[in-house]
Design a protein around this nucleic acid. Structure first.
Length: 187
DNA sequence: CAGTGGATGCTCT
DNA sequence: GAGCATCCACTGT
């Protein structure tokens, strides 16, 4: 069980430490393979321009879920980090489908493992995450976070789908995973 | 394969 | 009224 204190650190420490951690929502999920860090010094972050009704959870205490709607269609799940009053969170972008695969297949309407949870919108659809999860604590049901067992090899690169601060290397992935939303650009 | 554009709704200026 | 921390279908090789 991941404890609340795990998130009471810089997003740049928490984000790579989340690679390999098993994320479950109502028992459905698997090991996280791709995340992105956002904080309030970051022009691409929702929190950069201050607190609003949408991003309020980002400014709250660490260890909670920040869920927002993207492009009017998809939901995206973030894990809030750092101390209360700062806007910092890690966007969960992809995981390896391992637990509750049948429920993921039904929700996503595909059997293709690579298309179940590769990308923040797909991941939320597969795990059943919606705006109703915004503000919920991560150490209580329906959420469950299980520590990783080994030490994964982690790589980093630029984040995806943003225009501002696009060169910050704040995307962290499990090196060589075939469940990423996209491969890392070549160095 | 790569590139393009539409869906769709909410947030903020 | 513009702009998205996306995904998918469709085009043309």
């Amino acid at each position: 069980m991941i404890r609340r204190a795990f998130f009471d650190r810089s997003v740049h420490e928490v984000a790579p430490d989340l690679i390999g951690v098993t994320l479950l929502v109502d028992g459905v999920g698997g090991p996280i393979v791709e995340v992105e860090a956002y904080n309030e010094t970051d022009p691409a972050s929702h929190g950069f321009r201050g607190r609003t009704p949408r991003n309020a959870v980002m400014f709250g205490p660490p260890g909670y879920a920040y869920v927002y709607r993207s492009y009017g269609v998809h939901w995206c799940l973030n894990l809030v980090c750092e101390e209360e009053g700062t806007a910092a969170a890690v966007l969960i972008r992809a995981l390896e489908p391992l637990h509750g695969v049948e429920r993921m297949q039904a929700r996503r309407r595909t059997d293709e493992p690579r298309l179940l949870a590769a990308g923040p919108g797909r991941l939320c659809q597969a795990l059943g995450v919606t705006g109703e999860h915004d503000g919920l604590p991560l150490d209580q049901p329906p959420f469950e976070l299980r520590p990783r067992t080994g030490q994964p090899t982690i790589a980093s690169g630029p984040r995806i789908g943003i225009t501002l601060a696009a060169d910050y290397p704040w995307r962290y992935v499990l090196a060589g995973s075939r469940f990423l939303s996209r491969a890392l650009p070549r160095a």
